[in-house]
Design a protein around this nucleic acid. Structure first.
Lengths: 193, 193
DNA sequence: TTAAGTTCTTATCCTACATCAAGAGTTACG
DNA sequence: CGTAACTCTTGATGTAGGATAAGAACTTAA
C-alpha cells in the first residue's frame, strides 16, 4: 500500500523507516465508492489524497452548467485543489471518483504537524510541487499550440489506461473539445491507418 | 532592493535579519539590457531570477518558427524554467528581457547550499511553488473556458501595466491569438463603450 | 426481455478565429 | 532628413471545431 509512495519520497530525500512510519501514521486510508464527491465548489479543500487504486476527476462547472475536466488522477498520483487546501480558502472545483477508489488522505493540520516533526518532508513536498508545476506548464503549452487531434494523440500516449476506464465525453471535456468533435477525430484517425 | 522580496519571504516563514542577510548574499544582482537572452532552447536553465525592475518574457518557438509567449514577468515576480532548473535538464524555452531589467539571480548550487544553511527557506520556496501552481492552474482553466475577448479583458485587469510596455503582437501571442484578431477585438470593444 | 437510461456516431449548418493581403502610422537610423 | 523596418489596422476568404438534432449502440435494472 505504501511501497510506491515511499519510493517517490525517498527519491526526493533520504528518509529512515521510522520517519516513513510517522508519515504513514498521518495518512488515513479510505475506500470510496464510484461517484463519491470529495470536494465541492464553495467548500474548503480539506485533503491531499494519494491514489492507491482507482480513478478520480477534478473539474469545474462553467457558467453554462457544463462540466470542464481539468485533471484525471489514477494510481500513484496525488489529487487536491492545491490553492484551496494550502490557503484554506473556498474552492471553485469539484473532485469526484470515477471508479471505486482507495486513497491515502492527509488533512491540513496533520500536514503542518508533519512538517514540524520531519522537516525533510518540506523538501519532498517542495520537489513534488516543482514537478507538478512543470507538468502543468507542459500541458498548458501543448493546449495552446496543438490541434485537437494532436492533443488527443498525446493524451493516448500519456494516459493509455484512461480511455478504457472513463467515457469518451469526459476525455473530450479534458481535451477542451465537444464529444462530437472527439468522435469525428477518432473516425478520421481510423480511416488514416 | 530587497524590501519587497523580504516581505514575501517573511510572510511565508518568520526569518531573522541575519538569515535574510545570508539569503541576500547568495543572490547576484544584475543589470540587463533590453533584448538580453537569459535562457535559450537546449540550454540548462542556470537561474531563478527575481525581478527588481523591468520586464521579461518566457516563450518557445513552435515548429512553424512562431514565438509563443507563455509568461510575462514584471517587478516583484520570479522567472525561471522550473523544470529545467530543478532537474538540471535542457530547456525548450527562451527567456528574454523586454526592457532594461534589474534582477536578483540565484544558481542551482547556491540554492542547494542555502536550503542546507537555512532549512526554513525550504518552506518559503514550497509555498511560493504552491502559489505559482494555483496561479497557473487558474490561467489554464480560463484559457480553455473563455473566449479570446474575455481573455483579453482578464489580461488587462490582471496586468494593467503590461500593455503600455510591450507591443500588442506579443500580447496576442500570450493570449494565444493572432495580432489581427487582437486588433479586431480592441476595435470592437471601443465601439461598445 | 423489454424499457429507460447512457454513450457514441453522423449529418447539417454556424461561428470564432486564422490566413492572406494591402495600406497607414511609427520608430530607428545611415 | 528620408527610407527601411517595424507595428497596427482593416478587409476578404478559409477552416477547425461548436451547436443542434436525430438515430444507433450499448448499459442498467425492473
Amino acid at each position: 500500500m505504501f511501497e510506491e509512495l515511499d519510493n517517490h519520497i525517498t527519491r526526493c530525500a533520504p528518509m529512515s523507516s521510522s520517519e516513513l512510519g510517522v508519515f504513514h501514521s498521518r495518512l488515513k486510508s479510505k475506500i470510496l465508492k464510484k461517484k463519491t464527491l470529495l470536494l465541492q465548489q464553495g467548500e474548503i479543500c480539506k485533503f491531499e489524497a494519494y491514489i492507491v487504486k482507482g480513478c478520480v476527476k477534478k473539474y469545474y462547472i462553467d457558467p453554462d452548467g457544463e462540466e470542464v475536466i481539468l485533471q484525471f488522477a489514477v494510481e500513484d498520483w496525488w489529487i487536491s485543489d492545491i490553492g484551496s487546501f494550502s490557503e484554506q480558502k473556498p474552492s471553485n472545483l469539484f473532485i469526484e471518483t470515477l471508479e471505486d477508489t482507495e486513497v491515502l488522505m492527509i488533512d491540513f493540520e496533520s500536514k503542518q504537524r508533519l512538517f514540524a516533526e520531519i522537516p525533510k518532508l518540506e523538501r519532498v513536498f517542495r520537489i513534488m510541487m516543482q514537478r507538478a508545476y512543470s507538468v502543468l506548464e507542459g500541458r498548458f503549452y501543448a493546449t495552446v499550440a496543438h490541434s485537437a487531434e494532436a492533443l488527443y494523440l498525446e493524451f493516448l500516449e500519456k494516459y493509455p489506461t484512461i480511455p478504457q476506464r472513463v467515457p469518451q465525453q469526459q476525455i473530450a471535456s479534458y481535451l477542451g473539445i465537444t464529444p462530437e468533435s472527439l468522435s469525428r477525430i477518432k473516425s478520421k484517425l481510423l480511416k488514416k491507418d
